[in-house]
């Protein structure tokens, strides 16, 4: 298979952000954008102006860290965008600050509305500026129950779950054991 990774110069579109080009064949998207909280709306607006559509908004939970700006909440917001006209997928990731809130992008992408409501349900991230942040998938009684938050002992640091070129090889090496099926057995 291995579809060729075409470079349509989209990477320079997002030059104002902290971008990293990624290997599509290994990770399934082309550009990783590390965002600050105050850049989220700018990033979404840029993506909209350039003709990207919203694939999803979600989050994931890692250990909170001490940074220069303060303690992070450990939650990360993940935004994925892609294009209708050619193969280009971007991922934006932002660390949610301690007040557990991110700016809402649902006035730029109306489709984000449900994704943000879902993310609030599952993680408790509060999307500021969302007109209707009611529970969507969970019921009203479970307003304060966020099932995807991990227990303390299962939490890992952001580095431990971040992609590194070496990570793949290290796992490959110890997984060369002879095989059979992982489901059937």
């Amino acid at each position: 298979m291995a579809p060729e990774t075409k470079n349509f110069k989209e990477d320079i579109l997002f030059h104002e952000f902290n971008t990293t080009e990624t290997d599509y064949n290994q990770r399934g998207y082309h550009l990783e954008v590390a965002l600050e909280v105050n850049q989220v709306r700018k990033f979404a607006q840029k993506a909209y102006d350039e003709g990207f559509y919203l694939v999803f908004v979600t989050g994931f939970h890692v250990l909170s860290e001490e940074t220069a700006e303060g303690t992070t909440s450990g939650l990360n917001g993940v935004y994925q965008f892609a294009r209708y006209d050619r193969l280009y997928r971007i991922k934006g990731q932002v660390s949610v600050p301690e007040d557990m809130s991110l700016p809402s992008i649902c006035d730029i992408y109306q489709g984000a509305s449900w994704h943000e409501r879902e993310t609030r349900d599952l993680y408790g991230i509060n999307f500021e500026g969302h007109p209707n942040l009611k529970p969507l998938l969970l019921s009203d009684e479970d307003r304060d129950f966020h099932p995807l938050l991990k227990e303390e002992k299962k939490l890992k640091s952001l580095e431990a779950v971040s992609w590194t070129p070496e990570a793949l090889e290290s796992v490959d090496a110890d997984a060369k054991a002879p095989s059979s099926d992982s489901i059937d057995s």
């Binding site: 399934g28 994925q80 779950v161 971040s162 992609w163 590194t164 990570a167 796992v171 095989s179």
Partner: peptide
């Protein structure tokens, strides 16, 4: 032939 115990390397994938 796949490993019996599939290890998912750190990092994301889509």
């Amino acid at each position: 032939k796949v490993p019996k115990n599939i290890k998912l390397s750190p990092g994301d994938c889509n």
